[in-house]
Computed example of a mutant assay.
Amino acid sequence: MPEMEPYSRHVLVCTGGFCTENRGGRAVYAKLASLLQRHGLLFGPTRVKRSEAPCLGVCSGGTIVAVYPEGVWYHGVTVELMERIVVEHLKEGRVVEEHVFHRLGAPAPTDFPSTD
């Protein structure tokens, strides 16, 4: 059986070509490893796994980045914003709210409670 080392979060980066011009997600994904290393998040109990995805199904507002287990989805992620996400969200536990467009389990903006 394979074994998995413990990790605290998993970051998915869309590297496809539909949500950004020039496949900007590739630069974000490439920078992520060095950012995780610089901030001590590659090993140990605070380890963060990273994966690239050819498409996360949003196809606009990219580069798209999703952080789990929280299920926080960011839009418009640049290399500079990825550094903020690593420091503020992954290291310090504060979501970079102004770039969040979706949260797992949150109602969509058009979902309103019933008035019955």
Rank of each mutant, 00 (worst) to 15 (best):
G17V: 06
A53H: 05
G61H: 05
Y74F: 09
P45V: 09
R23N: 11
C14V: 07
R9F: 00
C19Q: 06
E92C: 10
S51I: 06
E52V: 12
G93E: 08
R84V: 03
A108I: 07
C19T: 05
H102T: 04
V13T: 01
T20S: 11
G17T: 10
Y74R: 13
L41F: 03
S8Y: 02
R23P: 03
H89I: 08
K31G: 04
G25K: 03
V100P: 01
Q37R: 15
H75L: 09
D111F: 12
H102G: 09
S51T: 15
A108H: 15
G105L: 08
Y74C: 10
C14T: 01
R26L: 13
V48W: 03
P113W: 05
L41Q: 02
M1Y: 06
M82D: 01
E52A: 15
S51Y: 00
G44A: 09
S114C: 12
Y29R: 14
C14Y: 02
H75F: 07
H89Y: 07
T20H: 03
E97L: 11
G76M: 07
L35E: 00
E92R: 15
V87F: 01
V87P: 04
L104S: 13
L12A: 10
C59W: 01
H75T: 12
M1R: 15
P109L: 12
Y74V: 10
T63I: 03
R103D: 04
G16W: 01
S60Q: 14
E98P: 11
V95Q: 08
K91I: 03
Y29K: 13
H99M: 06
V48N: 01
V87W: 00
R103G: 08
E80K: 15
V13R: 03
F18S: 14
E5V: 11
D116I: 12
I85G: 02
Y7C: 13
V65Y: 01
P2F: 11
T110H: 14
E92A: 13
G93N: 08
G16F: 00
A106D: 14
G57S: 07
L32Y: 02
L56V: 09
A27H: 06
F112T: 14
T15Q: 07
G71Q: 09
H89G: 06
S114K: 14
S8I: 01
P109G: 09
P113L: 11
V13I: 13
A108N: 11
F43P: 01
A33P: 03
A53Y: 00
I85C: 05
Y29P: 04
E97K: 15
E5K: 15
R50Q: 14
E98W: 00
L36E: 01
S34V: 09
N22W: 06
T46L: 10
R26G: 02
S8C: 09
V87G: 04
H102N: 11
L12H: 08
D111E: 15
P45N: 08
C55W: 04
A108W: 09
H99C: 07
H75N: 13
G76W: 02
V72D: 06
S60Y: 08
L90C: 04
A27E: 13
K91A: 08
Q37Y: 05
S60L: 13
C59R: 10
S60V: 11
L32A: 00
G62I: 00
V13H: 02
G57M: 06
V77M: 02
C19A: 10
F101L: 12
C19V: 07
R47I: 01
L90T: 02
A106E: 14
E92P: 00
C59T: 07
K31V: 04
K49Y: 00
M4D: 12
L41H: 00
H10Q: 12
K49N: 08
V67R: 04
